[in-house]
């Protein structure tokens, strides 16, 4: 389906990996694959998730470890299917326009832009494309975990 507006410029921000235990998974990726810790574990009640960001030396995007925040988490069911690769996240300059663009292009909006604990002052939105790939949009902006800190 063609979209009525130009395709927003997307920059890969992170790959989301659904895990049972963030600390345990982080230890694995640090010790076995050489990742480095880029954030403390962050609890986001709005997303019912605990997340932590890692990054390979020199990489221009992050790995996000995502675990359910409690048994009632929206992620608990997905984890029962085994976890693993969960979503891609793209940073965009205008999250409202980008969300509208992808909706018009046939993607389904899972949740409209809302504030996220991991990115103070920035909003995230969740969408799924026709290939049933879950992807996240993250509003570009200053502060930690911004792509501008990696790509001057």
């Amino acid at each position: 389906m063609s979209a009525p507006t130009p395709i927003p410029l997307l920059a890969l921000h992170h790959t989301g990996l659904l895990v049972k235990d963030v600390a345990q998974a982080a230890a694995h990726y640090i010790e076995v694959l050489g990742y480095r810790i880029e954030s403390e574990p962050i609890d986001d009640p709005g997303q019912t998730a605990r997340v932590q960001f890692l990054r390979l030396p020199g990489a221009t995007h992050w790995l996000e470890l995502v675990a359910p925040l409690g048994p009632e988490s929206k992620l608990a069911n997905a984890l029962t299917k085994g976890g693993g690769l969960h979503h891609l996240c793209y940073e965009v300059a205008d999250i409202v326009a980008a969300t509208a663009h992808f909706r018009a292009a046939g993607c389904m909006v899972v949740s409209e832009p809302v504030a996220a604990a991991a990115f103070p002052g920035r909003r995230i939105a969740w969408l799924m494309d026709r290939q049933r790939l879950l992807f996240e949009l993250l509003e570009a902006g200053p502060g930690p975990l911004g792509l501008s800190t990696l790509r001057p």
Partner: peptide
């Protein structure tokens, strides 16, 4: 069905559209 969350809802819509060769409007969804 507790597993029927917002992500599952979108998966259901997309899979149904694909299987039946239809497209639902936002109001229909």
């Amino acid at each position: 069905l507790p597993e029927w969350d917002s992500v599952a809802m979108v998966q259901l819509v997309l899979a149904t559209e694909q299987a039946f060769g239809v497209r639902f409007t936002m109001d229909e969804v």
